[in-house]
Simulated scan of single mutants.
Amino acid sequence: MTTARFLVVLDADSTLLQDEVIELIADEAGRRAEVQAATEAAMRGEVDFAMSLRSRVRALTGVPLGALDHVRSRVRATAGVGELTAAVHERGGVVGVVSGGFHEVLDEIAPALGVDRWRANRLAVTAGGALAGEVDGDIVDAEAKASTLLAWADELGVPATRTIAIGDGANDLRMMAVAGLGLAFNAKPAVRQRADLVIGAVDLAQVIPLLP
């Protein structure tokens, strides 16, 4: 069994990445404004995340798979992510990402940023090679994020007290609560209020002094 000294788990959109990937995909369908408003409401905790995600994914119906190459080229990593993942690895830690976003983007971007393991939603695809407007499989929601952090910690032999969760939205709060240290990063007010610590600058290198 692989072991680690500690585990750092980040949200993806607006945490590991500067962008909300679903909004970039919605650009390809000409529906960004509609999807962006729904995303912001979900991140503030005003609506159920799973219900909101299904609604937003429906707005992506018909986007050709080829358009995701353009989306991936537009995704921007958050400042300091390379420094943070390198520092975690130097100290014997593991970096995970658990996201309400999509494997179709993270599978390419996460390893390039030094992420060791990741979990996200998958988009259903039609026989014609376009997005079907549905999530394929169970939705990664707040409870899934929390359970994934704990499962990874268990697999790695890391006690929960030596885990760090970093997120920005309401669906990160459960994950932050079960972690040894919950960090609000680029976060909505409700998340800042309930986090153990708030990272002020939008720079993930600011987390390095907090590593075990």
Rank of each mutant, 00 (worst) to 15 (best):
R5Y: 00
R5T: 14
F6N: 00
V8T: 13
D11I: 07
Q18N: 13
D19M: 05
D19A: 03
V21C: 15
E23Y: 04
E23H: 02
E28C: 15
A29E: 07
G30M: 05
R31Y: 01
A38W: 03
A38L: 15
A41H: 07
A42G: 07
M43T: 03
V47C: 11
V47K: 13
D48Q: 02
F49N: 10
L53S: 03
S55H: 13
R56D: 07
R58S: 11
A59Q: 12
T61M: 12
G62N: 04
D69H: 06
H70D: 12
A79D: 12
G80V: 08
G80D: 01
G82F: 06
E83C: 01
T85L: 04
A86D: 15
A87H: 04
H89E: 13
E90S: 14
R91S: 13
G93N: 06
V97Q: 10
V98D: 00
V98A: 05
S99M: 06
G101K: 05
G101V: 04
H103S: 12
E104G: 05
V105R: 00
L106C: 04
I109D: 01
A110R: 02
A110S: 09
P111L: 05
P111N: 04
W118I: 00
A120Y: 07
A120F: 12
N121Y: 10
L123M: 12
V125R: 01
G128P: 00
G129S: 08
A132S: 14
A132D: 11
A132I: 01
E134F: 07
E134K: 13
D136R: 14
D136M: 09
D138N: 09
I139E: 11
V140F: 02
V140C: 08
A142R: 14
E143W: 02
E143P: 00
E143D: 10
A144L: 01
K145N: 04
K145G: 02
T148S: 14
L150Q: 11
A151M: 10
A151K: 10
W152C: 10
A153M: 04
V158M: 12
V158L: 11
T161S: 15
A165N: 05
I166W: 03
A170N: 06
N171G: 04
N171K: 02
L173W: 03
A177K: 11
A179S: 13
A179Y: 03
A179W: 07
G182N: 09
L183C: 13
L183S: 09
A184W: 06
F185M: 07
K188L: 14
K188Y: 14
P189T: 00
V191D: 13
R194D: 02
L197M: 14
G200Q: 14
G200M: 06
G200V: 07
A201Q: 15
V202H: 11
V207Q: 06
